[in-house]
Write a protein that binds this DNA or RNA. Sequence first.
DNA 1: CGCTACGTTGATCGCACTCAAGTATAGTGG
DNA 2: CCACTATACTTGAGTGCGATCAACGTAGCG
Lengths: 259, 259
Amino acid sequence: MWPYLIQWQVMSGRKKSPLRLAPITPEACGVDLRLDILSRLPFFDGLSSVALEEINRLFRDHGYLAGEAIYYAGDPADALYVVAAGRVKLARHTLGGQDVLLDVLGPADFFGHLTPATGEGYPDTATALTAACVLRVGGDDFRSVLARFPSVALSLLDITARRLLESQELIRQLSADSAEQRVAHALLRLSEKLGEPSEVGTLIQMPLSREDLADMTGTTTETASRVMSHFQKQQLIQSGRQWVAITNADGLRALTEAE
Amino acid sequence: MWPYLIQWQVMSGRKKSPLRLAPITPEACGVDLRLDILSRLPFFDGLSSVALEEINRLFRDHGYLAGEAIYYAGDPADALYVVAAGRVKLARHTLGGQDVLLDVLGPADFFGHLTPATGEGYPDTATALTAACVLRVGGDDFRSVLARFPSVALSLLDITARRLLESQELIRQLSADSAEQRVAHALLRLSEKLGEPSEVGTLIQMPLSREDLADMTGTTTETASRVMSHFQKQQLIQSGRQWVAITNADGLRALTEAE
DNA sequence: CGCTACGTTGATCGCACTCAAGTATAGTGG
DNA sequence: CCACTATACTTGAGTGCGATCAACGTAGCG
């Protein structure tokens, strides 16, 4: 009756979430993790441990509950943030009340302002998707780091340029691809970034609703749901409430590459 | 009969293009212009004239005819380009043969690779929209400049981050706005960048076809044409073959802000 | 003056949005 | 452990925006 469910939870009769998100405890935000995270940041690569510890002292850590906002669009602020643990999403809001999900971030990803203060507020809203620990450094402090360690600036430039290229690819997709292709693409991107092998396939390790997917791909929850049902019937994915696993990445890729 | 044409060319009976594009002569690419352009680049701000001349020697100039490609998507290349004169467009192509116009550049704008060579080719195609003069610097040479003048890297980072924010705003628009709103937005952006006062309103100083507009906004030439006709009847713009002038920017802005 | 590419406008079609009802899941408290 | 509830998800029917196909003006160039 549900042939596509055979591999998974037939006996219990229930389809429970296979998501295993590491619990974020208060200690998770401690100094040990901080140094570890900072040293894993691609743009602090090659810095001496002395320099790193010095930089570390400029950061302040802060924990967030799932769903809590880190900053809102329009907040007058000038700081750089680094995800230490958990998941964070960046979104823009439209006048019509609709949301556009720009990016999902995990440990060692950064966000916020990294350019000189313009006086303008943030253009987007940052929200903790799961319980999360986030490090924050003030704009002036970070600019002093950039000035003292030119390699950091070069590395940041590199990453930012790459993000620009990625967002241009998204523009291309939104302009030219069908809803189904865009959803397939979003799933593949998330899978590359947050995917982990599991008994149900490559599981995307984050709570991911149909609405999130819709906001990532410029469609509606209903359309996202229909597309996901379709994928499930084709054995490309398995999915339930707030979770998605990819069982046939090549099949999805073929869809995105079809004319 | 054409009430919206009254302000313009009633006597001649003909609606000729008001575009006045400065002719690009071979000498336009000469050394004098080059130093002038380089000194106007925002990221060379504050450099000594000695340093500028030294940097200048790293660049090579090249002229292009209207419509000529500067590089194609996929070309294995590692260089930074600066527009000295004329207009250049950046576009991505889809498998379906469709184009997506990402940006239009004028004098002192830069494009191409500005990050370490990844071995990948360009993701987009750069084409001269008008006769153009373009300066080019090899990746290694430019990286040596970045290493020697940290302020250049900081400034580049600033500009790149700003472009990233702009492209995210475009993503929001493509996800959430109607075709009419997207066209209105595109016209306003072009007008801010390339607009010049003229007898017909703020004239966008570049050849701009309905197809270009469609490729900028993710629609078709037919839809772009319909939207433009509509705008013209509402006295928001005046337009003809390959040219557009804005007569009521506030009116257009009101459309983009409507829910 | 005629050719070609650009632009306009109309008719039709289809994908995805909207509105609406119903089902499954996971967390809550008994 | 199980009912209860809130929220996510699913599915259907109808609609509309914009794409597609097609035909016809029109500007500008040689």
